[in-house]
Simulated scan of single mutants.
Amino acid sequence: MRPSKRTAIVEAVQRVIARDGVAGVTYETVAEESGLTKAGLVYHFATREDLLRGVQEHVAAIWEETMTALAGAPADQLTPQERLAAYVRTTPQSATRGDVLLLLETIGDPVTGAPISGVMNRWVPPIPGSPPLTDQQLRMVLAQLAADGLWLHEALIGTTVPADMRQYLTEQIAALIAQDR
């Protein structure tokens, strides 16, 4: 089955972001990358912000589907520990330079950044407001920060973590959540 034009456009935007950054996303660059006309792009995405939100929606849907499958249920049916464990196991596997650049550019915008913010709000428990933390709270905060760090590592450092090492580290991070002390 052929991917929809909308999906092809979103994937083209992702390639442009990975290559040229968010500033490189224009109707011209996306039209060239996707092989579509500017009019074809405008039909699916009326504004540049709509293009960026479309990519956010695409990435958010993939993360949500992956976490739901790993956890065996939607976020609203899980404990905070189960939600965070799914997040920890998903996040380090999905980082791309383009994802990082898109998030850095759009996460503060309440409209464009809403899809990813929504996923994060459903799956990642908020960090407690002030210390001291219980042992469980501390392990959960550290697990979240470690998973986020592993997610960013390759994009920021430019070196690849071998898949078996990434999996090992991910499981060690997830084990922090399950520890009973």
Rank of each mutant, 00 (worst) to 15 (best):
L103F: 08
R48D: 03
R89C: 05
P132E: 11
L133A: 05
L41I: 07
G149E: 05
V22P: 00
R48Y: 05
P131W: 14
P125N: 08
E154Q: 14
L102T: 06
A39F: 10
Q179M: 14
R122Y: 02
V119H: 12
A143D: 03
I62N: 06
Q56H: 14
V22D: 00
A146K: 01
V42H: 13
A86L: 11
A146W: 02
A31W: 01
W123M: 10
Q56L: 02
H58K: 08
A75H: 02
L104A: 12
G113F: 01
F45M: 09
Q137C: 09
I9H: 00
L150V: 13
M67R: 12
V100H: 09
T96Y: 09
L51K: 09
E64Y: 05
L102F: 07
D50G: 10
I9K: 01
I127G: 02
G21C: 09
A86R: 07
A60V: 09
L52K: 01
G35H: 11
V10M: 10
D180G: 09
L176M: 15
L51Y: 07
L103I: 08
L103S: 05
A155G: 12
A86P: 10
Q77E: 15
V111W: 03
A143T: 05
E33I: 00
V22I: 06
I177G: 02
Q144F: 10
S94F: 06
R48P: 00
T134S: 15
E154T: 12
R53V: 03
V55L: 04
A46M: 02
Q144S: 10
A147M: 06
P125M: 11
T159D: 14
L52T: 02
V161M: 15
V59W: 09
G158Y: 12
V55T: 10
P126I: 04
L102C: 06
L70C: 02
G40W: 06
I107L: 15
R166W: 00
Q56M: 12
T96F: 00
Q81L: 09
Q81G: 13
R97N: 09
R15A: 13
Q77Y: 02
G149N: 09
V124N: 04
L133E: 07
T134C: 08
W123T: 03
P3Y: 12
R166M: 14
P74F: 04
A18S: 15
S4I: 03
L133M: 15
L51C: 08
Q172D: 12
G108T: 08
T159H: 14
L70V: 04
Q167Y: 00
I107N: 07
W63T: 04
P74T: 12
D180E: 15
E28A: 13
A12R: 01
L70T: 13
Q167W: 01
M165W: 06
D99F: 14
T112W: 00
Q14I: 02
T79W: 11
